[in-house]
Amino acid sequence: MQNSHSGVNQLGGVFVNGRPLPDSTRQKIVELAHSGARPCDISRILQVSNGCVSKILGRYYETGSIRPRAIGGSKPRVATPEVVSKIAQYKRECPSIFAWEIRDRLLSEGVCTNDNIPSVSSINRVLRNLASEKQQMGADGMYDKLRMLNGQTGSWGTRPGWYPGTSVPGQPTQDGCQQQEGGGENTNSISSNGEDSDEAQMRLQLKRKLQRNRTSFTQEQIEALEKEFERTHYPDVFARERLAAKIDLPEARIQVWFSNRRAKWRREEKLRNQRRQASNTPSHIPISSSFSTSVYQPIPQPTTPVSSFTSGSMLGRTDTALTNTYSALPPMPSFTMANNLPMQPPVPSQTSSYSCMLPTSPSVNGRSYDTYTPPHMQTHMNSQPMGTSGTTSTGLISPGVSVPVQVPGSEPDMSQYWPRLQ
């Protein structure tokens, strides 16, 4: 039975679970980093996980050691009161100082060594604690504590007292930064006198190289990059290397530039699409467009005044059976039934097929058609009795279509119309 579990990581490298990497692998990681390889490249070359490479390099940059820390136990506290007071002093002298600059000053002034120097995250935590204590304490208590930490007896009751030896409130920041720059020169002199001055200088240079600022491109470089971006948004590694040799930039910087440029292009394309949609959409909808001609068919113009009344309900007709019959029939052209047409008796099958359309009241044959006459024609229609054979009435077949029909004066039988409509 094995005491430890061995495995293979996602890159194909072998590791022992819970145990640190061998010293030979750690040394190779540092050597590759000094030669300029990126952590992701080191991870692929040595088949070590990216997190492990970053952790080893980060500890090497901070402490200069590649040895693993002790497994188990607690780390001794490195942010001692003396170190905290120095950090507060540096922050007062130059409020814009960075944590890694404070760390360098602690090393250069001999406050800490490589073994007990606090990390950048520890210094940031100390600065946050100082800021929170400043908010919790009152103004007087804060000034007393700062005077105690600074070891001075001057008056701290006013704002300019934060910067000793100065009279203009805006000047101390520059003086403090100048003092810090002077301390940086002392850093070089002190570290050069040490035993491991060369190694420390190499480590600091490598650290500065990794902690780079934003790349500033010249106009020629920007023009070359934009020209390549117009050709393709995704250049391959050969195109990037050719462009890197042409404009004297690292291939990694060119790759990052193209990634950022593609993101910018997507944002601009989104804005262009929004403007295009806004320009195509009308600002207001016309009133006429809300009524579609496919839904509402136009009603033909009436030929006679009587045809303006298109349904039985508008003429005072309360018989719903006839109203439904007229509205359900398709529109037909106007025609006239003459008196000489043969009077065919209704076929029983045809009569039964339209039995649902006729009223059940037996008085329908005896009703006159003056009910369908509009009010303004009552006088004219009353002067001509319906009993004469020459009287013409208008029957409504569908809305908007008038059918003048000659009705025999002897017997106005409704059943004569249905064979004609089939």
Rank of each mutant, 00 (worst) to 15 (best):
Q2Y: 09
P22E: 05
T25K: 14
L11I: 01
R92E: 12
V16K: 15
S6A: 12
N124T: 05
V78R: 06
A70F: 07
P39R: 10
S54C: 08
V78L: 04
K86Q: 08
I97A: 14
N50V: 12
G51V: 00
Q27V: 12
L127T: 06
Y90E: 08
A70K: 15
K134E: 09
G73L: 03
P22V: 06
L146V: 12
R38L: 04
D41S: 07
D104A: 13
G12E: 03
S74F: 01
D140S: 11
R59H: 10
M137T: 12
V120M: 09
R26I: 02
R105M: 12
S122C: 07
S122A: 00
M137K: 13
V53T: 00
A99F: 00
K145L: 10
S35F: 11
G58D: 09
R38I: 04
P95A: 13
L32G: 01
G58A: 15
S108K: 13
P76N: 05
V78I: 06
L46H: 00
K91V: 03
L106T: 04
S24A: 13
S35V: 11
R69M: 09
K91L: 04
G12Q: 03
A79G: 04
A88P: 00
G72Q: 04
G36A: 06
Y60K: 09
G18D: 01
E82K: 13
L21A: 05
K145P: 13
Q10W: 03
L46P: 01
R44S: 06
L32V: 01
Q27F: 11
C40M: 07
I42A: 01
R59L: 07
E31M: 10
S74A: 08
G7Q: 15
A37R: 14
F98T: 05
A99S: 08
A79C: 15
F98H: 09
Q27N: 08
R19H: 05
S24M: 09
Y60I: 00
Q2E: 11
E93D: 09
G73N: 05
S121T: 00
C112Q: 05
Y143W: 10
K28A: 10
G12P: 02
T63E: 08
G73I: 03
G36D: 06
K75C: 04
P68T: 00
S4G: 12
F98R: 14
L146F: 11
G141P: 15
C94L: 12
V30D: 01
A70Q: 12
L46G: 03
R19I: 05
N17Q: 15
L127R: 15
K134A: 08
G58V: 08
N116R: 15
V83H: 04
A37F: 15
L146K: 12
V126A: 11
V83A: 07
H34I: 13
N9T: 02
L11G: 02
A88R: 10
R77Q: 00
M142P: 12
P20F: 02
Y60C: 00
S96M: 07
C112N: 07
Y90M: 09
N129F: 04
Y143P: 13
G36L: 03
I66E: 02
M137Y: 13
L11Y: 13
D104F: 15
P22W: 02
V126K: 05
K91F: 00
V120H: 07
G72S: 05
I97K: 15
V78Y: 03
Q47G: 05
G110P: 07
E31W: 15
S119W: 00
S108E: 12
R92Y: 15
E62I: 07
S132T: 12
N116T: 08
R103G: 06
R26L: 01
V84W: 07
R38W: 03
N116I: 09
P20V: 02
S132A: 13
G51S: 15
R105Q: 13
Q89L: 09
N116E: 05
A79Y: 02
V30M: 05
A99P: 04
R59I: 05
D144V: 09
S108H: 13
P76R: 11
V83I: 06
I117A: 15
L107R: 15
D104N: 13
E62Y: 05
R38T: 04
Y61Q: 06
T80N: 05
G141K: 10
E93Q: 11
R69E: 05
A37D: 03
P68V: 03
R38Y: 04
G73F: 00
V53F: 01
G7L: 10
S35T: 12
E101I: 09
I42N: 02
I117R: 15
S4K: 12
Y61R: 15
G138H: 13
N116W: 07
Q2L: 11
E82Q: 11
K91S: 05
L11C: 05
S132W: 10
A37H: 15
F15A: 02
N50Q: 12
C52N: 00
N9Q: 00
G36P: 02
G138N: 13
V14I: 10
S35R: 13
I102A: 01
H34F: 10
T80F: 06
K86D: 07
S24D: 08
N9K: 01
T25H: 06
A37Q: 13
V8H: 07
A88L: 10
A70L: 07
H5C: 13
S4T: 13
V30G: 03
L149D: 15
L11F: 08
L46W: 08
P81I: 07
G138S: 12
A70R: 15
I29V: 05
K86S: 09
P22K: 07
V8W: 04
V8E: 02
H34A: 14
P20W: 03
L46C: 08
S65N: 05
K134P: 10
R105P: 01
E82N: 10
V16I: 11
I71A: 15
H5P: 13
